[in-house]
Every structure is written in C-alpha cells, then in structure tokens.
Computed example of a mutant assay.
Amino acid sequence: MVETQEATTARRARYGGRAQGVPERGAPARGRPRSEAVEQAIVEGVVQLIEDGVPLAELSIERIARTAGVGKATIYRRWKGREALFVDVVASMEVPDAVLPGTSMRDDLIRLLEHMRRRGLNMRSSALLHNVFAQMKTLPKLWDAYHEVVVEPRRRVMYDVLRRGLADGELAPGTDVELAADLFTGPMLLRSVMRPDGPLAEDLAERIVDGVLTGLRTQAPTTA
C-alpha cells in the first residue's frame, strides 16, 4: 500500500528517521547535493555490509560510519538510531510508493493493491530483500519499528480511501471499514506472502477489488 508524502514526512519525523525519505539507490542528488550525497553514502554503506553477509544484529553505527566514510555524529544527525536507519534502508530497497489517482474509491483501491502485487514480485526477485526481511523478524525492536513506521501508515491510507468511498456513497452505509480493508488486502497478502509460488497476474489487483466490491455492495450493511 501507499501513503502520501505528508504521511511519509510525519511518520519518519515521529520515529526519528529522515523527514524527507531515503534517496533511491543510484539516484542523482537533489536539493542540497552535499547532504544528499552523504545520506546516499550511508544508505549504500549499510546495503554493502548486508551484501557482504554482515548480519543486521552486528551492524553498529561505528561500523556503518567507517564503511560510509563519515563520522558517527553525521549519522546521528540524520537518524535517531540503528532502527530508524535500517527502516529507511529497507524502504529504499522496496518498490517506490505510488500516487493515488483520486478519481474514485475503486481506482485508489486498485492502485493500493497493485503496489502490494509489485512489492510481492520484488520480494520474490530480490534475494537481498528477502534476506533482510527474514533477519528483521528475528529482531523484535526493528520489526516493531518497521511496522510502526511503514506498515501502519499504509494501513491508514487504506482506511482513508474506504472512508471517502463510504462518504461518497461508493460503499453501503454502515460498512465496517476495518473489515473491508482486510477483505481487500487479505487475498493479495495471501498470494504474495503466504504463497510465494502463487501467480501474481497483472490484472490481479483489479479482479480482487471488483470481486470484493461486488460482495460488499450486495450484503446487508453492518454497524461500523
């Protein structure tokens, strides 16, 4: 799922990460070139250490600073600590967030699920990303940070889309927004995460959205 730039700024500021996000790997510097170059070097330093087989649990700020050719203070000026840095590094390796079209609830839902589908394909094709997530699950503090900083804001974006659809009459009055969100995301998560060999066809997002919408529009409304 995706989030707005405002949501990205707020979540990273709240946790202590970079307010404007992480530069894409290999992307040219923008805005303040010197600052962007330093941040890129730090992110690339972490990725290089992971590629070299260094476990996340052994990645200290000191070691990252040496690899990136910067001082520890330079890292701490940009990230509150290891967890905030690692979350931004992982975010830089994932599929970039998409911009919601805003033309209808259906269009926005398809875009959200399409992002999940593409993320699933990326996870399957990237051994490095798969390895990072496997390690994150063994580090409760980092895993919780990832959910707080990345997963929860994306879930709130889904809720906002459904609430707008409810207000615009695209969903029946009384539709349970949280349950509806689970109905939309569940099949895509099952296919992309729980069934790593399951097909992720290009039209899967559209088929899921239309199928769930048909069911929601024909069932009796419930109290939210």
Rank of each mutant, 00 (worst) to 15 (best):
L56R: 09
A19W: 01
G165Q: 12
V87A: 12
L204G: 00
A65L: 09
L171P: 06
D144G: 14
D210G: 04
V161T: 11
G17T: 06
A37Y: 02
L189S: 02
V151S: 15
S92T: 03
T9I: 09
T4V: 10
R154H: 11
D176M: 10
E202A: 13
A57M: 04
D144T: 14
L121S: 11
I50L: 14
T222A: 13
T74C: 09
G26C: 08
A145N: 01
A134T: 01
E148T: 14
G45Y: 07
V99P: 09
A181T: 03
R30A: 02
E206Y: 10
E152Q: 15
V177A: 07
L121N: 09
E44W: 00
G215L: 15
R207T: 00
A73Q: 01
E62D: 15
M93K: 09
V151F: 15
V87T: 06
A57C: 04
A84E: 11
K80R: 15
A127W: 12
A19E: 02
P101Q: 12
R164V: 05
V209S: 08
V87K: 07
N122Q: 13
S35V: 01
L128C: 13
S192E: 04
G186P: 01
E152R: 15
A37M: 07
G21P: 04
L100H: 05
E36W: 09
L49V: 00
N131L: 11
W79F: 13
M1C: 03
I208S: 08
T218G: 10
A127E: 12
K72D: 11
G215A: 14
A29G: 02
L85C: 06
M116I: 07
R117N: 02
L85P: 01
A13F: 02
S60I: 08
D197Q: 07
Y159C: 00
T9E: 02
P199W: 07
V87D: 09
P173F: 14
L190T: 11
E62Y: 15
R25N: 00
L200A: 06
R191M: 09
G169P: 05
L213T: 03
R124T: 07
N122L: 13
E3G: 08
P23R: 03
K72R: 15
V212L: 13
G21N: 10
G45I: 03
D97N: 01
I110T: 00
G17W: 05
G186T: 05
E58H: 14
V90M: 11
A127Q: 13
R191L: 03
A180C: 06
L179E: 03
M93H: 10
R124E: 10
L56V: 07
K72Y: 10
I61L: 15
R12I: 08
E148G: 12
R195V: 06
E114T: 11
V46M: 08
R82Q: 12
G198Q: 00
E6A: 14
T103F: 12
G17A: 02
V212H: 14
Q20L: 08
L162Q: 06
G31P: 06
R191V: 02
R217W: 13
M105G: 10
A172Y: 14
G45H: 06
I50K: 08
N122M: 12
